[in-house]
Structure formats: structure tokens, C-alpha cells
Design a protein around this nucleic acid. Structure first.
Lengths: 194, 194
DNA sequence: TATAACTCGAACACTGGTGTTTGACTTACC
DNA sequence: GGTAAGTCAAACACCAGTGTTCGAGTTATA
């Protein structure tokens, strides 16, 4: 099985299957946060036993899915230029990563019930910090309101993003409109009081 | 059992227990949307068999909890004066019902996985319509922005409300601050573009 | 091509939930 | 005070999911 020496090189098809499984896990968990191992294995086009050959438990698979998603997210954020006007920076941030973030928070929900809180926090600390930095910078420059704590502004963004994803999933919101709607709501919400 | 003639008067302690069970269901389901019948029965201080004596299934109990919550919510909305400035109306609406709405959406989440969509929609149609009316009136009066559909404004309010409740539940947000923070975010988000 | 790595279906044990029955007990209410 | 109504613990059948084992078959790769 894959449970050999850590540094050992595994067969190509095995590595490929691991990828397929994680992909399928992200896909299934995004749709329903309590997707079963059977569903995920089937979606990956792989037998259940094979899955357990690569991941010792459902929990570890969820952790792998979350890790991959957050790593991707961090990578996207890394490539963005967020140094200009905080408002346009926020706009580009939302536009370029909203789907990813939405998926991540769906998988995150699955993880909440299964992984220790500390582990979860450690995993999404980096991307979260980036958003937080952008917000506090905006506040310092007087472009974002300073009468509410940055943590709440970040939280509100998160909730709207997640909610928009849910709306898209259940057909209430056109995916075409989603990022624009989110941006406009959030930018207005962040504007200093007149 | 309670399963006798529809109009028959049941014993006082039985009626009382039904109340206790629904209370406990709301309480438990608000905390975790997949609370078990055992947990709910225990929280109600009642045996499992007694619970099944009053509700034929877990699903029917969830429906009862949701119905009661939404009826309460509608009652609260009914008593409010929402005829003045839409902004202050929205403020009073949020302040007086935010906890109720937050609970309702937690129970709603439990219901999503269990009740037919049509049933759910029928149940929370009235309170939702009231909020919708307030928003469209605000838009008509030019106090709320008209460049985004009312459905999305309502949806965003819902998501922020629900998210704030989640933050309070996990200790990230002071329950004292919550309604004010929500109001300020949402009012700003609803303000017409300058 | 030989062999180790991998896949996979079938069957198993285990857990935790739902819903039911039984029979003895308690209690509201006439 | 008698009785119907209600409570409840224990035990049951059932189901769906997790995780494991086995053994036979397939395939990458050296």
C-alpha cells in the first residue's frame, strides 16, 4: 500500500488517484458538507478500498482537501497586487478568489465537525491574515470606516461571500452576478459614515 | 397516546411536555443542526419514548420547531411599527428580532436536509415578505440603493445576521455588540451610491 | 518479463442513529 | 378513589456510515 517509507516514490497511477480523490472530495464536500466516503470514492472513479489505501480515515481526507484548497487560495492571493487603493484592491481580491473562498468555506464547514479547532485555525491563518491586513490598511488610510473593528468587517465579508455561494448553489443568484453584487455590497458597507 | 381524536383535550402534563420538547428542540438545533432525538429528549427532561409519543418522527419535530419559531417571529414583526423612515424601521427590526432570526436560520438549516423545499418556503414566506416589503419601500423612497435587486439586499441581510449569530455562538463576537454591528454594516450597505 | 505496487469487490465488525414494542409505573382528572 | 392517560427504561429491529481484511486480478516499472 501507499503506507511505506515516507520518502519512497509511489507509482504514477497511485499519485494520480490521490489527486483525483482530493478533487472529488472538494467537489462533493462543497455541495454537501456531510458527503460520505462512498460518494467521494465514486465521484473520483475509484473503489472505497483504494481510497482507504491512501487516506487512513475520512477525517484525514477532509483535512487534505481543506489544506489543498487553502494552499491554492493563498497562492492566488500571493499573485495579486493589493498595494494600491484598498477599495480597488478589495474589488480585485473578491473577483479573483470568490469561488475559491466559497468552496473553501463549504469544506471548512465539513472540517468544523471533525477536526480540532486549533488545526483548522492554523490552516487558514495565512489567507485570513492577508485579508485582515488589507482591511486595517484601508482603515488607516481613512478609506474604510474606523468605527467598527477590523475583525467584524472581515467577518462580515466572509459571511456575505459564503452566503452568495449558497445562493448560487441553490439557484437564487446568477453566478455571473455574484462577484459584482458582493463587491458592491461590501464596498458600501466599508465606506466611512458621512 | 396523544394519537387520539383530533379535537380531544389532552392532559395538562402532556401538553406541557410537548412545549418542553419543542423548546428543547429549538435550543439544541440552534446549537447544532444535526442534534439527535436523544439529545433533544434529554434536554427536555423527558424520555425518548415520550417524545415519540408526541411526534411521530424526528422530521415532524423539526417541522414543529421551525413552525413555532417562525410564528413567533411573525408575531414580533406584526407588533413593530415599520411605517416611518425605512432606515430607522430596519434598525428597530434588526434590534428586536435578530436573535430570533438567528435561531430560526439555524433551525432552518436543520430543516433543509429533511423537509421538502416547498414546505419550508411556505412556512417562512410571511416574515420574509415583510422584510422584502420594507426594502422595496426604502428603494422606492430613494433611501435604499436601487442599483441592486431587492432580493439580493434581503439575502445579504440574512447572511450577515446568520453569520453574526454564528460568531456569537463561537465566542468571536460579543452578543452585546452584535445587533449594533449588524445594523451599521447593513445600513451602510443599503445606502445609495454617492 | 518478472515482481512489487496497486486496485477492487465482497464480506466483516462496529458504531450511532431512528423508530417500535412491551410492561410496569405514576399521575391528572372525573 | 377509580381509571384512563401519560411516562419511561429496556430491549428490539433496522439502517447507513466507517474502517478492516482477504484474496484475486491488473499494471507500472526496473
Amino acid at each position: 500500500m501507499s503506507r511505506s517509507v515516507p520518502g519512497a516514490t509511489r507509482r504514477a497511477d497511485a499519485r494520480q488517484n490521490v489527486e483525483k480523490i482530493v478533487d472529488a472530495a472538494i467537489d462533493c464536500l462543497s455541495r454537501s458538507s456531510d458527503a460520505s466516503v462512498v460518494q467521494i470514492a465514486h465521484a473520483a472513479g475509484v473503489g472505497r478500498v483504494t481510497l482507504y489505501g491512501h487516506f487512513p480515515s475520512r477525517d484525514s481526507l477532509i483535512e487534505a482537501a481543506l489544506t489543498r484548497l487553502l494552499a491554492q487560495g493563498d497562492e492566488v492571493l500571493e499573485d495579486l497586487d493589493l498595494t494600491g487603493d484598498p477599495r480597488t484592491a478589495l474589488d480585485t481580491l473578491i473577483r479573483s478568489s470568490w469561488l475559491l473562498i466559497a468552496q473553501a468555506s463549504a469544506v471548512l464547514e465539513a472540517a468544523q465537525t471533525v477536526l480540532p479547532p486549533g488545526r483548522i485555525h492554523a490552516l487558514h491563518a495565512r489567507p485570513e491574515q492577508r485579508v485582515r491586513d488589507l482591511i486595517t490598511r484601508g482603515q488607516a488610510e481613512g478609506v474604510f470606516r474606523g468605527d467598527l473593528p477590523a475583525s467584524w468587517l472581515a467577518s462580515a465579508l466572509h459571511h456575505v461571500l459564503k452566503g452568495a455561494a449558497a445562493d448560487v448553489a441553490n439557484g437564487t443568484l446568477d453566478p455571473e452576478d455574484a462577484p459584482r453584487f458582493v463587491t458592491q455590497i461590501v464596498l458600501a458597507a466599508y465606506t466611512p459614515r458621512a
